[in-house]
């Protein structure tokens, strides 16, 4: 069953978001309905839709037998959850102390003016989401702005227009291959929605997917082929065959973990958002080539 719901945006822009109740029920199925499972459930819904649609929250509240206010309270408490659909490009303006004294509020205002939205909102064409953050840890370079995972330092208001143009053109542009059977996917982190694509290193002639991994007290980067179906990888550390590896987002450092288990080997599956809608999951065990693509 698919329902059309109108997600309310500030300023009365209505964005249609399709919610499949079956999917939500499926997610709930995989968690027990104990109190503590709520955040894990919401995380998974956010990974699936890129935001938490109203209808999904209502379903969760009903199914878990919790008041809707509680679910809504949790969903609005944490910065990593978003009730509004996120745009294709995420702009984070640092308003931390150091950036603040170097004029970051003016930068944030300039972004708000040029994009015509307030911080925390998404443009009606769903191109940009603007948010403010509190210190990105690069205070000496302030005011700092991060766009789709790229850091820009010592920003002045006059640079804002240029940055928006560059972001629109694509700071990490990828070319779509000719062959329709093997196709490249463009993925981003389910938590922060930053692109995971890395043009500086190509695998199978396409930009690779960059993640951080850790296993056995070792940490390092891992590049995966972005061609769906290909299992080519390149890794900083040698990963022994059969090893189950923890995946992390290189931008927000969140662990990329869902609640699915690999249907072939039982290791946890690693979820990533596919630009354009949907989710891809790959098995976290080296050597196991199981993967699932779920397009919406």
């Amino acid at each position: 069953m698919t329902q059309d719901i109108a997600t309310r945006n500030k300023g009365d822009v209505h964005v249609k978001q399709e919610v499949d109740t079956e999917v939500i029920l499926g997610i709930l199925e995989r968690h027990d309905k104990a109190r503590g499972a709520l955040i894990a459930v919401l995380e998974e819904i956010q990974a699936q839709y890129g935001c938490l649609p109203e209808e999904a929250l209502r379903t969760v509240a009903n199914e878990m037998g919790r008041p809707l206010v509680d679910v809504y309270g949790v969903a609005t408490f944490y910065r990593s959850f978003s009730l509004q659909p996120r745009g294709k490009h995420l702009i984070s303006v640092c308003l931390g102390t150091a950036c603040h004294v170097r004029g970051a509020p003016r930068i944030a205002e300039e972004f708000e003016r040029q994009l015509g939205i307030k911080a925390g909102e998404t443009t009606p064409d769903e191109e940009f989401t603007l948010e403010t953050v509190n210190c990105l840890g690069a205070c000496a370079l302030g005011p700092v702005v991060v766009i789709d995972g790229h850091y820009f330092s010592k920003i002045r208001s006059s640079k804002v227009g240029q940055l928006i143009d560059d972001a629109l053109k694509g700071l990490d542009k990828i070319e779509i291959g000719e062959d329709k059977r093997i196709f490249p996917i463009d993925v981003s982190c389910p938590r922060c929605n930053h692109s995971l694509m890395d043009e500086s290193l190509t695998i199978d002639d396409h930009p690779s997917i960059r993640v951080s991994v850790s296993f056995d007290h070792k940490h390092g980067w891992l590049r995966l082929s972005s061609l769906y179906g290909s299992s080519s990888i390149r890794a900083e550390q040698d990963i022994p065959i059969g090893m189950v590896v923890d995946f992390f987002c290189p931008h927000c450092h969140a662990e990329l973990i869902g609640s699915w288990e690999c249907p072939m080997c039982g290791a946890p599956m690693v979820p990533m958002i596919v630009r354009g809608g949907g989710m891809v999951q790959i098995c976290s065990r080296r050597g196991c080539n199981s993967h699932m693509l779920d397009l919406i």
Binding site: R8, E54, L57, P67, L68, V69, D70, V71, Y72, G73, T76, F77
Partner: peptide
């Protein structure tokens, strides 16, 4: 009834119904 609750946090914390619409409970 559990119709109203806390929303957001920090300086945006506020009291109200989910989604700011009239509560059905």
């Amino acid at each position: 009834a559990k119709a109203i609750g806390f929303r957001n946090r920090g300086e945006k914390r506020s009291i109200g119904t989910p989604f700011d619409i009239k509560s059905d409970v």
